[in-house]
């Protein structure tokens, strides 16, 4: 069992190691001659004109919320999809009902305009 996870573990270690080395090497090798202009805060090459931590639009939260719901739906449907070949039609209908109930909610929020960016 652990051998399967060893691959994932190796990838996790590499994925932490590579950016860590890149940041550390840059810190060691780079010359340090700071001045006021170099240390100033900038975004995309231009100077910032407001505070960095601003309040974001509520629309992002709505999208994340809808994403979370359909993420959980996927979690429920994935084991069913794996077992799809081995279950009778009656059980497939149950999964269709499961999707249909959520499809109703999806159509509702679509009609309500929650998915359009304003």
């Amino acid at each position: 069992m652990l051998n399967q996870w060893l691959y994932i573990g190796i990838f996790v270690v590499i994925s932490v190691f590579l950016p860590g080395v890149a940041i550390l090497l840059a810190r060691i090798l780079s010359p340090k001659k700071p001045n006021a202009i170099k240390n100033s805060v900038y975004e995309c090459g231009v100077e910032t004109f407001d505070k960095t931590w601003i309040q974001f639009r509520i629309q992002y939260y709505l999208y994340a919320l809808v994403f979370l719901i359909f993420d959980v739906e996927t979690v429920f449907l994935f084991p069913f999809a794996v077992a799809y070949n081995q279950v009778p039609l009656f059980m497939v209908m149950e999964a269709i009902i499961f999707i249909a109930i959520l499809m109703g909610g999806f159509l509702y929020i679509w009609r309500k305009g929650a998915l359009t960016w304003r």
């Binding site: 709505l62 919320l65 809808v66 719901i69 959980v72 739906e73 429920f76 994935f78 084991p79 069913f80 999809a81 794996v82 077992a83 799809y84 081995q86 279950v87 009656f90 059980m91 497939v92 149950e94 999964a95 009902i97 499961f98 109930i101 959520l102 109703g104 909610g105 999806f106 509702y108 929020i109």
Partner: peptide, 28 residues
Amino acid sequence: GKGFVSPSGFALPFETASVLLLAALLGG
């Protein structure tokens, strides 16, 4: 997966989860 959809397993909780997710979606 079989347990989720089989009537002797968790078919009713499975459908209830759908209604729960619907309620969370609409309420949120």
